[in-house]
Amino acid sequence: MYLEWAPDPALAGRVARIWTNVATSSSTQLVVPDGCVDLIWGPDGPHVAGPDTGPMPVRMSPGDRYSGVRFRPGAVGEVFGVPVEALRDSRVPLADLGVLPDLTPGTMQEALAVRLRETPEPDPAASAIAAALLAGRSVGQVAWELGLGERQLHRRSLRAFGYGPKTLQRVVRFQRALRLARRGVPAAEAALASGYADQSHMANEVRRLAGVPLGRLLARP
């Protein structure tokens, strides 16, 4: 059973949600790219789930419990003591990063709030970059609107999100299409509303990012 709720006010500017997931049967949960970084406490202890560029299957047994803090896209900054791109497509034990050594599930939010105060703020342009790409702007347009060269935009995107703006564009477009499809919007309409050339383009991108067709992805809990 998956549940989520808003974070403590001290975290709200950088954390999107707090969540738990308890397995009631043996299953494989499919984690798909969403532009976020998660701090997770699972059966093997705490670890960091970096920004994904493809599907990450998680095998769960009955009774397995996961508790997590999901950062907003581009908001993780230097919280974990390493560049965000070093976490890309990875699941890293928190002990290997040397931060938050005394973390427990019950103190996760409090300890994280302290850690956030100790580290620099993330790039203030990160939210504008993500919003502009979600709105359908090209990478060149985003760079021009922010007064940046495309190389500068790439470097800042890499530092904020863990990958360049073209990958970020693919991820936010995929997530928008997925949200629309889950609301019952027909696939062809969801494709056009999300910035794909057509339904076939969306189908190919969904397979690349999620590893399964859209219909199978929607059927998963």
Results as ranks from 00 to 15, higher is better:
Asp123Trp: 07
Ala23Ile: 14
Asp102Glu: 09
Ala111Gln: 12
Gly136Thr: 07
Arg170Asn: 08
Ala49Val: 04
Val69Asp: 11
Arg59His: 04
Arg117Trp: 00
Thr119Val: 12
Ala130His: 09
Trp144Phe: 02
Gly77Met: 05
Pro46Leu: 06
Met56Tyr: 06
Gly77Glu: 04
Val114Ser: 01
Gln109Glu: 15
Ser27Arg: 15
Ala86Ile: 04
Arg170Asp: 06
Ala12Glu: 13
Asp34Ser: 12
Leu116Ala: 02
Gly81Lys: 08
Pro57Cys: 03
Met1Thr: 13
Leu87Gln: 14
Leu168Ala: 11
Glu189Pro: 04
Val76Phe: 01
Arg159Lys: 07
Pro62His: 09
Lys166Leu: 04
Arg179Tyr: 08
Arg176Ser: 11
Met108Arg: 05
Tyr196Gly: 00
Leu116His: 01
Gln169Trp: 05
Gly77Val: 04
Val171Ala: 13
Met60Lys: 13
Ala12Cys: 06
Val32Gln: 06
Pro9Gln: 15
Leu192Arg: 14
Leu133Tyr: 10
Gly140Pro: 14
Ala49Phe: 04
Thr104Cys: 00
Glu85Gly: 10
Arg14Pro: 15
Gln109Val: 11
Ala75Gly: 02
Pro221Arg: 07
Leu133Phe: 06
Ala131His: 11
Val99Ser: 06
Gln109Cys: 13
Arg91Thr: 12
Phe80Met: 03
Leu146Cys: 01
Gln109Pro: 10
Thr24Gln: 15
Val171Lys: 09
Val142Asn: 10
Ala75Asn: 01
Gly54Thr: 03
Leu11Ile: 12
Trp19Gln: 09
Arg182Ala: 11
Ser127Pro: 01
Gln199Thr: 11
Val212Asn: 06
Arg220Pro: 00
Asp44Arg: 09
Val15Glu: 08
